[in-house]
Computed example of a mutant assay.
Amino acid sequence: MRIPATTSNLGPGFDVLGMALALYNDIEVSVLPGKGPDQVEIAGEGADRLPRDGRNLVLRAFREALGWKFHHPLRWRMKNRIPLCRGLGSSGAARLGGALAAAALSRTGKDRWPDFVAAACRMEGHPDNVMPAFFGGLCGSYRVDRELRFFRLRRPVGLRAVVCIPELEVPTEKARRVLPKTVPLADAVRTAARLAVLVTAFEQRRYERLAAGMDDVLHQPYRKRLIPGLYEALSAARRAGAHGAALSGSGSAVFALSPTAAAARAGAAMARAFARRGLRSRSLVLDFDYRGAEVR
């Protein structure tokens, strides 16, 4: 299996919007003969500290999505390229990978695979990473009663994704704890307006509107205390030529949408902004992923 990284929120689309990126985790699973525990091999991101037993997030998602005990031990080989705790969908990719492994090994028909995707969303607690990781592209997710639904937005043309990743981990749970339970009415209205601008910017390919559309007052002002240099990095990306920039998910990575010609410059500008606040970082210029999760 190959699961893409994702950036979510894109500013005001909190827990709704997500975009798949061309940076991937690979998961290989095979059935072992006899009895015994699963075997887990991990390379790449997190190889020095991720658990290699039933506590591993991929294995936990597999068991929960499957709903019954698999009759043979499994060998798991994981090659992780998505950084951990940076707001790039590493936990969503792990949960989706485990759920899709359950779908494949239980020989469930592909017409029922969306049920396993929905299970991964339930485990994750929000759908904005899992849905684009599965379907690819730029997706919005919402619920009608208990039914999870999604829509795709138009593919960006002439843009690249620029991600700047500080050497700072921000666990999602910590980033959610700093958010208020209620927000001022003015902030709710501004968020609705900005989200409308953002959606129409993609649909009409009016990318000059992305700076306004990716402006956020719902979560970034509260999370900036966790990420020194956040606003400086976002401003630096725009000054370097990016159309818009926002915190990637719950951070600590920041994400910009840039014309191809300015993409590397925007990434370097964000890295310099973090460096001025004492944070090392690295920037990546990435394509968008439109294939979504692949199971072979």
Rank of each mutant, 00 (worst) to 15 (best):
112 R>P: 10
38 D>T: 11
64 E>Q: 08
231 Y>K: 02
113 W>P: 12
8 S>K: 07
37 P>H: 12
152 R>Q: 14
76 W>R: 05
163 V>G: 12
24 Y>E: 07
157 V>G: 11
113 W>H: 12
11 G>Y: 08
146 R>V: 03
27 I>G: 03
97 G>D: 14
64 E>F: 06
144 V>N: 08
220 Q>N: 06
93 A>H: 05
115 D>Y: 04
206 R>Y: 00
11 G>W: 02
259 P>G: 06
32 L>I: 14
291 R>G: 15
35 K>Q: 14
21 L>T: 09
60 R>N: 07
126 H>V: 10
4 P>H: 03
143 R>E: 14
95 R>P: 00
90 S>K: 09
267 G>I: 02
135 F>C: 02
259 P>K: 09
15 D>Q: 07
155 R>V: 08
199 V>W: 00
272 R>N: 04
229 G>T: 08
84 L>T: 13
184 P>D: 01
57 L>D: 04
279 L>P: 12
281 S>N: 13
224 K>F: 01
266 A>R: 02
247 L>S: 03
199 V>E: 06
41 E>M: 10
263 A>L: 11
136 G>L: 00
73 P>N: 12
123 M>D: 02
81 R>K: 13
57 L>H: 04
224 K>M: 10
280 R>F: 10
101 A>L: 14
201 A>V: 13
284 L>A: 14
229 G>Q: 07
99 A>R: 01
296 R>W: 02
31 V>R: 13
125 G>H: 01
294 E>S: 13
63 R>N: 03
109 G>S: 11
169 E>Q: 15
81 R>A: 14
47 A>G: 13
295 V>R: 12
258 S>I: 04
16 V>K: 03
265 R>Q: 14
248 S>M: 03
146 R>P: 01
148 L>M: 07
6 T>C: 11
241 G>A: 09
173 E>F: 00
45 E>G: 11
20 A>Y: 10
28 E>A: 12
148 L>P: 14
228 P>F: 06
110 K>Y: 05
121 C>S: 02
206 R>W: 03
216 D>S: 05
190 R>C: 06
135 F>M: 01
85 C>H: 12
15 D>V: 03
277 R>H: 15
238 R>C: 04
262 A>T: 10
19 M>H: 11
124 E>C: 02
162 V>R: 04
267 G>H: 06
282 R>P: 13
67 G>H: 02
241 G>C: 07
241 G>K: 06
167 E>I: 05
100 L>Q: 11
5 A>G: 14
170 V>A: 15
258 S>T: 12
222 Y>V: 08
210 L>M: 07
77 R>D: 06
84 L>W: 05
82 I>C: 12
138 L>R: 00
38 D>V: 06
26 D>T: 07
80 N>C: 09
7 T>M: 09
133 A>I: 00
85 C>L: 07
210 L>H: 00
